[in-house]
């Protein structure tokens, strides 16, 4: 990971993209970018390059699985 990407990942952690948090994709703009992502009770707009720094696993909507 380059310095800039590492920096970006660190920043994402600070605004709440942390292990165990649930994320949900709310919207995508016209050409697939940016994304509106719900994390915790916040919504953030992210570029695809930023979103790529976040590892997610799929959970079923009503299951209380995390991450």
């Amino acid at each position: 990971m380059g310095r800039e990407a590492a920096d970006m990942a660190e920043r994402l952690a600070e605004i709440g993209f942390l292990p165990g948090e649930r994320v949900r994709l709310l919207a995508r703009a016209l050409f697939g970018e940016p994304l509106a992502v719900r994390v915790g009770s916040d919504t953030f707009a992210l570029r695809r390059a930023e979103a790529a720094c976040v590892r997610v696993v799929r959970v079923e909507p009503d299951e209380d699985g995390r991450r």
Binding site: E4, I15, F44, A45, L46, R47, E50
Partner: peptide
């Protein structure tokens, strides 16, 4: 231009 442009903008 730089390659990476973080956005990280809060949508309140």
């Amino acid at each position: 231009a730089n390659a990476l442009h973080p956005l990280q903008m809060e949508l309140p």
